[in-house]
Nucleic acid binder design. Structure first.
Lengths: 109, 109
DNA sequence: GCTAGTATCTTGCAATACAATATAGTCAGG
DNA sequence: CCTGACTATATTGTATTGCAAGATACTAGC
């Protein structure tokens, strides 16, 4: 749907925002993102990002048993994670603003 | 300003849109983008994209003398370029929509 | 036991923004 | 005349990142 090149640099923030909304685990994040309209974000995408976020100490993980399957790792934001997410949202708004300026002259020809 | 990772996959479409707006050349596009709020997009970024767009036959170039400097290469869109730009804009709207859904629950806490 | 669904993780690849660098034309000041 | 600043195009190498493909493993139903 949305080309993957366009998502670069956004998924990290998007995943952070999903985790902020409600404590969750990787497998479920994938489903959440699809619901929002990002298309199917595969595991090969999710897990490296999660590990990166953890390495940068933006999230912390906690193992918990699942009612139907292997253990899940639930994540939540650290204070640094909240800060990073704020920066991300600010940057996103800047990007939207720049694109709006760019497309302003476009009257749907 | 806007982190470069966030621009990946967007600059190609943005440059195409700038060229659509008025026939122009690479050096000037860089200035235009800065005006719109994309920050300083350097030549190492612009030229590879221009060459790629040309290789994919989305734009065609024409040399013309400059009143003050080396020759300029003015670009304009091909029909395929217009098509590609339409697709790009559609994808951009999808992305905005997905981000809007994602951030909807966020009441600025 | 086998299959399907759930769940995490790793490897290797392709795309892309950008710094750094090279080349060269024009023009003003000294 | 020549040096520096501005204009202008192009290439090379690097870091980041999304993703396909595959490995591993737990649970439940047939």
């Amino acid at each position: 749907m949305i080309p993957s090149q366009m998502l670069k640099g956004l998924l990290e923030g998007a995943i952070l925002e999903v985790i902020r909304g409600n404590e969750t685990y990787a497998y479920e994040i994938s489903n959440h993102l699809e619901t929002f309209g990002f298309g199917e974000i595969s595991e090969g995408t999710i897990y490296p990002i999660i590990l990166r976020l953890q390495k940068n100490q933006y999230i912390t993980g906690e193992n918990r048993p699942s009612p139907s399957g292997p253990k899940r790792k639930y994540y939540r934001l650290t204070p640094a994670g909240f800060d990073y997410l704020d920066t991300f949202k600010t940057d996103w708004h800047k990007l939207q603003s720049a694109m709006r300026n760019l497309l302003k002259g476009d009257d749907g020809v």
